[in-house]
Simulated scan of single mutants.
Amino acid sequence: MLARLAATATVAAALVLPVAVAVPVAMQPVTPGTVTATRPLPPEHLIPGSASGTAITYRTLGPHDRPALSTGAVFVPPGEPPPGGWPVISWAHGAVGIADSCAPTVSGRIGGPYLGRWLAQGYAIVATDYVGLGTDGLHPYLDGRSEAFAVIDVVRAARAVEPDLSDRWVALGQSQGGQAVMVAATLAESHAPELDHRGTVALGVPSNIENLAVLGGPLFPALPLQGTTVFIAYALAGLRATDPGVDVNSYLSARGEEVLAQVGELCYEQAAAAVGATSIGALFSRQVDEPLLRALREMLAIPIRGYEQPLFLGQGLFDTVVPAPLTFALAKDLTAAGQRFTFRVYPQGHLETMLASEHEAHEFARNVLVR
């Protein structure tokens, strides 16, 4: 009898206490910034001039502020750290794709000579892949809050791996990463008060896109821009995967469904070659309405208040990916909201602005990190 009771109790316990590894990440207790795995990066993936490079998997918050995992990397310059440790640059990359193979820590395309020159200034570099790039689920492209949390939490994670890192940090982002660091700037103090966030450099920021979403539909006008169809498809694919309450498929044409399937497997260059000739209007079967518009606003909108630390905003006048008028509108809104920031324009295109702004961005970072 006792044996039968013991066996029954064992079975019951097994039914109510599932094995820990079987619990989905979204249901587990989460401390953002907790490191769950590390691995050394191969030499060919290191930022030029780095003394070491480590890939990390860490806990953060994904869409709708739900617990999620992200991957990223931490790079340390050579030599002895200064008193207080190496100040940190948290790098947020531009669009690479939404498939796991596109993650910079997988492809090795983490920053190259550009970040190498930041490293040479005496900074440790931490670089998030963002949620869903190299971790479970599809990457929610241009979901500002999840990108922002990944940018902040990778600093926490990197400091757990490399004890010689300071708590002083600056966020640096370009294109998609420009959106990520601007949202991160408004969340940094409340989300990670133990860190000393000193400022933000945001370049080629895709802003005010949510204000164009109302035009979404079969009659969407042709735009003289680069990559727009791919970027729209990435955003729709990510939204479809992370917000089942919005029936994204109901807005898609047959061609739109094909494109979303393609871009879910291709990194940016391949996706642009495969679907770049497809118009935005061809993605849709009907005009977008409030459910989708509301979800896009929540994903895409960049705050115009809440910038407690210095902000450097850079824009190319000849940018055909993120057109200058959208950034001028952002600058106007920030000014009207009473935000103080540095705004610089350059007679350059999208990627070229990242290089053209380099000297001023370095000077900005030096000034905010020594105050």
Rank of each mutant, 00 (worst) to 15 (best):
H197C: 08
S253D: 06
G276Q: 08
E258A: 10
A202Q: 03
S285M: 03
H350V: 05
P325M: 09
L195Y: 02
L15F: 10
V205A: 07
L313A: 03
Y346D: 04
V170C: 04
G144A: 14
L17R: 13
T8M: 13
N208S: 11
T186Y: 06
A127S: 15
S207I: 05
L225V: 10
A213C: 13
V263C: 03
P18R: 11
Q226C: 11
R109M: 12
Q315V: 09
L41V: 05
Q226H: 09
S70C: 09
P206I: 00
I89N: 01
V170E: 01
S107I: 08
F220R: 02
V76T: 09
I152D: 01
A241H: 10
G122I: 00
Y251S: 05
V88K: 01
D319L: 04
G84F: 10
A213V: 10
L41R: 04
P291H: 07
A324D: 10
S107Y: 07
G314E: 01
S285G: 13
E298T: 14
A331C: 08
E298G: 10
D65G: 15
I56R: 01
H191M: 12
R255K: 11
W169Q: 11
A301E: 15
V35G: 01
A331L: 07
A150N: 04
V248G: 05
A222L: 10
L283V: 12
I56T: 05
G204H: 01
Q179F: 09
P29F: 08
C267S: 04
P32G: 09
R255L: 12
S101Y: 08
F364C: 09
A37L: 11
A124M: 00
R66W: 05
E358C: 05
E257F: 03
R159E: 05
D143G: 06
V170T: 08
P303I: 06
G111R: 05
V35Q: 03
A14T: 14
T278Y: 06
A103H: 04
G79V: 09
N367V: 13
R145C: 04
A6R: 14
L195V: 07
Q270R: 14
V35P: 00
A37R: 15
V30T: 15
L225Q: 09
L138E: 10
R39N: 10
V205R: 00
L212N: 11
A103M: 08
H350F: 07
G245A: 12
E352S: 14
G122Y: 01
L2H: 10
V205M: 08
P218I: 03
R198S: 07
P221N: 15
L115D: 01
A365Y: 03
L17S: 10
Y123E: 00
H191V: 13
V35Y: 04
S52R: 11
Y307H: 04
T36V: 15
A213H: 04
V96A: 13
G204K: 00
F341L: 11
A12W: 15
P291V: 07
E298F: 09
V259N: 02
G122E: 00
V370T: 12
R168V: 04
T31V: 13
P42A: 08
T242P: 02
T8Q: 13
